[in-house]
Write a protein that binds this DNA or RNA. Sequence first.
DNA 1: CCCCAGGGCCATT
DNA 2: AATGGCCATGGG
Length: 321
Amino acid sequence: MPDIMITHKKIYSSLLNTKSRLNFKDTVQSGQSFRWNLNETLKSYYSSVIYNSIIFICEINSEMIEVLCTDQELSGKPINEFLKHLFSLDFQEETVFSSRFQQEFPEVWNLVQSYRSVRVMRQDPFEIMVTFMCAQGIGMHLIRRQVSMIAERYGQKIMLELPEGNLTFHSFPPPQALASADPNELAVCTNNNRIRAANIIAMARSFESGKLALACVDSGKCDLETLRETLCVHSGIGLKIADCIALFGLGRFDAFPIDTHVKQYLWEWFGIEEARHSLTEKNYRILQEKARAILGAEYAGYAGHILFHCWRKEVKKMKAF
DNA sequence: CCCCAGGGCCATT
DNA sequence: AATGGCCATGGG
């Protein structure tokens, strides 16, 4: 693949009115995406690569973001339309936490206020699959490093020419690029974990064959259990990662992934006894049922992600990455 | 040195 | 069904 060179004359800019419903910084730092970086040359701009387009976003104020992009359209849509969908601005977040929840858990409700505009994004399914297959039992910074290395090694290199100097970006590799990867070579990018590398390659081949890709297209229609079963067929994808894929990559806001952090707040905030025991499959399902009873089944995952980020920042005092 | 970090899989009881 | 070991690395 030849590298792509883009000059600064080809950058398109726009303003997007978010109506104070998008906390952009916390949204991209909340652990659902590892592909946004604070740009060192264009300070105060976050940059990412979506498909083969470079995009910059700067928060003007709470109501407005400035957008710079190397293309006029993303995935066949005007940039602002694409971003509204990406950040799920069409979704009414006011309904996420019910009035019953607000009355029953006033201290949690108070703590979560500043995170209510953290959006659950609708990201590319394949990219999310690879990302969360890299997220087993390790810290966020190691996940970020793996995703970056995969893009640098297997993605399309894109150079951007600016008055301030040249910038280099990498697209996220499409399924065929990882399907044909050598396991030992990919393992260099997956924290030297060869099992993980082999699992990603097998999943990419399943995606490339059309089976997994078709399941993604139909993911909005089938029930969550069926969707999880088709995802969990793949080695390296268990219940938790399947739920992450459904929530962050397939727009299934009812999917409620439970990890070590969620397990902690289910006990500390809601006093769910089972959260003190280990996350066996049976206990995982029990915890999901109890969480849905508190958060509501329809948007449990959306609420869960906001609580997840709130827990890590406010209680665990963790830095973003 | 220890334990923990957005887990999943396998072998053993 | 529940438990332990294993994978791998970095940070506290």
